[in-house]
């Protein structure tokens, strides 16, 4: 029997699934709402895992392969849980010519991980962005979504140190 409209059951009892279901309901469980729904999942849980993709795919009646295809096509979606803190280095053109590559090398070296990775203790993730649109303050990085303008290596180390457990 084909699954009934919107009747797939959420992966867990977690209340955040209600927010996800609300997004799908707002769009009438339309297949077109796939990206909007994945945004809500990521906003609520921080990343997309297989059970969440299965739940969304089933609810919107799209093949799991399509949900997976969309989730991996767009850079904004992450299939891995983020660290407690995230440091995003902007690699837009203005940041690039004002020294973003050196900042990235610095953060990679001081944490011992590469971009896209999370420290072994799950404490800090290092990511890069194509451009965050704060070009007039280049080079910038985002520390937990807060923009740090005109960043240099010294300040960067200071900001990272603030995240370290004392």
């Amino acid at each position: 029997m084909p699954p009934t409209l919107g009747k797939a059951s959420p992966p867990s009892e977690d209340k955040r699934w209600k927010i996800v279901a609300a997004t799908m309901r707002r769009h009438g469980f339309s297949r077109n709402a796939l990206i909007e729904t994945l945004h809500t999942v990521q906003q609520s849980f921080g990343f997309l895992d297989r059970p969440s993709l299965e739940y969304v795919a089933q609810s919107l009646r799209v093949p799991l392969s399509k949900a997976f295809g969309v989730a991996t096509f767009y850079h904004f979606f992450s299939l891995k849980p983020p660290g407690d803190h995230t440091c995003v280095i902007c690699l837009g053109t203005a940041c690039y010519i004002k020294g973003a590559p050196q900042l990235l090398a610095e953060v990679e070296q001081s944490l011992g991980i590469k971009q896209g990775e999370t420290t072994a203790d799950g404490h800090v993730s290092v990511l890069t962005a194509r451009c965050v649109g704060s070009c007039s303050l280049a080079p910038v990085a985002l520390f937990d979504s807060e923009v740090a303008p005109r960043l240099n290596a010294v300040e960067m180390r200071g900001r990272l140190a603030r995240w370290m457990p004392s």
């Binding site: 837009g92 053109t93 203005a94 451009c131 649109g133 704060s134 007039s136």
Partner: peptide, 11 residues
């Protein structure tokens, strides 16, 4: 969807 790096007019 202002994608050009180094551009923030639309933003």
């Amino acid at each position: 969807d202002e994608g050009d790096p180094g551009a923030f007019m639309d933003r």
